[in-house]
């Protein structure tokens, strides 16, 4: 009956992709994380008919097309204008945070050093933005 929670992670770093999907599985077993290694691959996927993830996580510092450019492109896709896009970056620089907000990010998480912190942050985000969590009913 229920569809799994569909998540798209856009990150060029394979370690971070691995960490993310492990953590996501542990805090939300009923989730499905798809990934893209850069903005181009992500946009290819997102422009495909019928592919609308519930949540998008986006790294900022990526080769070829950086996270902000990618975010602006995502917001141009009509069915994604209001989808939660959470920036996931190693940078805690306020300049990056406000630039992300300006480009249309829903929230901003600094990539943590500790697994518990990462879990906590992702759990908070799921709580806040998961369209299927009770607060969104």
């Amino acid at each position: 009956m229920d569809q799994p929670l569909k998540i798209l992670l856009i990150d060029d770093d394979s370690d971070d992709r691995e960490i993310f999907s492990l953590v996501m599985k542990s805090i939300h077993p009923f989730s499905e994380t798809d990934d893209a290694i850069d903005g181009y691959e992500a946009l290819d996927k997102l422009k495909r008919d019928g592919y609308t993830p519930d949540l998008i996580f986006l790294d900022l510092n990526m080769p070829r097309m950086n996270g902000l450019e990618c975010l602006r492109e995502i917001r141009r896709i009509e069915r994604l204008t209001r989808r939660p896009v959470i920036v996931l970056s190693t940078s805690s620089n306020p300049v990056d945070i406000s630039a992300s907000r300006a480009a249309g990010a829903t929230d901003y998480i600094v990539k943590g050093n500790e697994i518990q912190t990462i879990k906590k942050h992702l759990a908070q985000v799921l709580q806040k933005y998961n369209p299927r969590s009770p607060t969104h009913e």
Binding site: D15, I19, L22, T90, N113, E114, I115, Q116, I118
Partner: peptide
């Protein structure tokens, strides 16, 4: 910044 990167991974994967 770049030297922090692998350290962060080492930390996280050690915890895992």
């Amino acid at each position: 910044h770049d030297l922090q990167e692998p350290l962060r991974k080492i930390h996280v994967f050690s915890e895992l």
